[in-house]
Simulated scan of single mutants.
Amino acid sequence: MRIVTTGRSSRERWPLMSGRFVISLDFELLWGVRDHADRRSYGANILGARTAIPRMLDLFAANDIRATWAIVGFLFCENKEELLDCVPEVMPAYTNARFSNYGYFDEIGRDERTDPYYFAPSLIDQIAQTPGQEIGTYTLSHFYCLEDGATAEAFEADLKGALRLASRRGITLGSIVFPRNQFAAAHLDICARLGISTYRGNPPGWAYQAAKGEEQTYSRRALRLVDAYSGVLGAHSFAPAGGSPANVPASRFLRPCAGRLARLHPLHIATIKRGMTATVRAGAGYHLWWHPHNFGGDVQGNMQGLSTLISHFVELRDGYGMASCSMGVAPCV
């Protein structure tokens, strides 16, 4: 639906300024959570994501929203035969075998119709056909760059596999999001060499720095949680940066409206709105991200929150010239 703003114009409250609003989505289905969840424990969220994605695309199209969809390469596969055919020569050898998605191939069905948890070519087609949507990569296998046993050689083989799968469908991948936000300088060097021009970095500060799973301590998670509902660490807006690939750092993870924290979701939405507003005042960028399956448990409630944020963006666009941007190839509007 197209968002229409009402009430007193923001132009009456602040002087005209500008800013950039970036959205990226980490599209992974079950590949992104299989190390700790399965169809039985999380399948409803995965199927809910398949309902939510077309609604997100409709909302984006109606309001001229640009976005980057970072997609796990395996989701491109039409069937299990193609999945098996795209396995790279060098696979990750994680110390914790649960991290390797290659270990779950035996449970995967024949194709998207029989196994909607692991295949998504029809959804990718919908994304590609929606104006303003950029398709980026979330690596081939949901590769964990910083976990013990991962190597730069295996990461390069994985990324090459993702590039090949996309190329078969006429898609050039120019942006990358790193699973679990894990990366180091060596991984960025490989991305640059393989033609990736932009990546999503992390917000500044100790709580958000890239780290392997066992280093994501309770203290870090707790501080991120408090920040999500209060903005105590600031708006996390960003200024354009150079480099190859260029960093388009995250500002805020759009947390799901779910569970015990659902009643606090309005506080979270208000925190994001304040960050977007502060970004306009600074003439900077604001980068919002989430996983489609985050919407899967309560599609209606989560779409309502997203619609509120898009409404706020439309107000900032109409009043101050804030522009909607993808991470990479699509121009801002």
Rank of each mutant, 00 (worst) to 15 (best):
R164H: 13
W206I: 11
F313P: 13
S100W: 05
G243Q: 00
S197G: 06
S18R: 15
E81Q: 13
S230T: 15
C77I: 12
C257N: 12
R274Q: 14
Y138M: 12
S175Q: 09
R169I: 10
R252P: 00
N247V: 04
A70Y: 07
C257D: 09
P179F: 06
E112D: 11
L309R: 07
A210N: 06
G301H: 10
Y320D: 15
I190N: 07
P240D: 06
C191T: 03
M303H: 08
T279F: 10
D318Y: 11
S307P: 10
G319M: 02
T68F: 11
R224A: 02
A239G: 04
P292E: 10
W206M: 11
A93K: 15
W206V: 12
A186Q: 15
F99G: 00
E81A: 07
S197D: 11
G48Y: 04
W206H: 14
G136N: 06
E156A: 03
D85E: 05
G242H: 06
R164D: 12
L173W: 14
M276Q: 09
A62P: 01
C332Y: 01
R274K: 14
A184Q: 14
G132H: 10
G161K: 09
A49N: 08
Y94S: 01
V248W: 00
S9F: 11
P266G: 06
D111C: 11
G305D: 05
W206Q: 11
F253H: 11
I310C: 07
E147A: 03
G259S: 03
I196G: 08
D318A: 14
Q133S: 02
G161V: 06
T139E: 10
A52N: 11
I124E: 03
S219Y: 08
D64P: 07
A210H: 05
I135Y: 12
A211E: 00
I310G: 06
D158P: 09
F155I: 03
L165K: 05
G170S: 12
A278V: 02
N202R: 01
E214L: 12
D125K: 13
F60Q: 00
S324N: 02
A192T: 02
R13L: 15
G136W: 08
A282Q: 12
N181A: 14
G109S: 00
L223S: 08
E315Q: 15
M303V: 03
S122I: 04
V329E: 04
S219R: 10
F99N: 10
A270D: 09
Y286C: 02
Q126R: 14
M1V: 13
D58L: 00
P331K: 03
Q129V: 03
L146V: 03
L306P: 02
E112A: 12
M17N: 08
N101F: 10
P240N: 01
E78C: 01
